[in-house]
């Protein structure tokens, strides 16, 4: 009984403190992009994507429109915006449809300032591991600010 309680408490603590990455990849023909977003609160998440076989990195933020705490509408998809700045100077503006419960899954499309088109969707961690050149996704923070200045 004591062991079960200990196990439960430790798992609850681990679950309550860990961040949860949701992995994404581009589905548009051409260059392959992969990355992840990590929810920071009910309505916003940090994002980083990498271009396959390249040094190009983009990071920024995704935020939902009008989240509600309604359980009945929890599985609806809502509009979200993803704004990314890249280390080659390009900026991306994408519109997503995300499940508002916990940003669990979704799909999005958008362009950069040169009108190049991008489409993305969420993928499993296993699929991410197959395509990724990196081991760990690094998100922007106060020490390493986003490439997007505004």
């Amino acid at each position: 009984m004591k062991k079960a309680l200990k196990l439960f408490l430790i798992s609850a603590l681990v679950l309550s403190t860990c961040g949860c990455n949701k992995y994404i990849k581009s589905t548009h023909e051409g260059d392959l992009y992969y990355g992840a977003y990590n929810r920071r609160d009910f309505i916003h998440a940090d994002v980083t994507i990498y271009k396959k076989d390249s040094d190009k990195v983009c990071n920024g933020v995704v935020f939902l429109n009008a989240p509600t705490r309604s359980f009945t509408m929890k599985n609806d998809r809502v509009d979200a915006k993803m704004k990314l700045g890249c280390n080659d100077g390009s900026i991306m503006d994408m519109k997503w449809k995300l499940r508002k419960g916990s940003f669990t899954d979704g799909y999005g499309e958008g362009t950069d300032q040169f009108n190049n088109k991008y489409t993305f969707k969420t993928i499993s961690k296993a699929e991410f591991k197959k395509i990724a050149d990196i081991k760990r996704v690094k998100y922007p923070n106060s020490k390493n600010p986003s490439y997007l200045k505004y």
């Binding site: 933020v61 700045g85 080659d88 390009s90 900026i91 997007l148 200045k149 505004y150």
Partner: peptide, 25 residues
């Protein structure tokens, strides 16, 4: 007109000094 990853918003103060805006995040 195209914006760039280096695009910043700067407030020009009364004494002509400039203050960069915090980012959107």
């Amino acid at each position: 007109v195209l914006l760039h990853a280096e695009t910043e918003l700067r407030f020009v103060l009364q004494d002509d000094t400039k203050e960069t805006s915090a980012d959107r995040r």
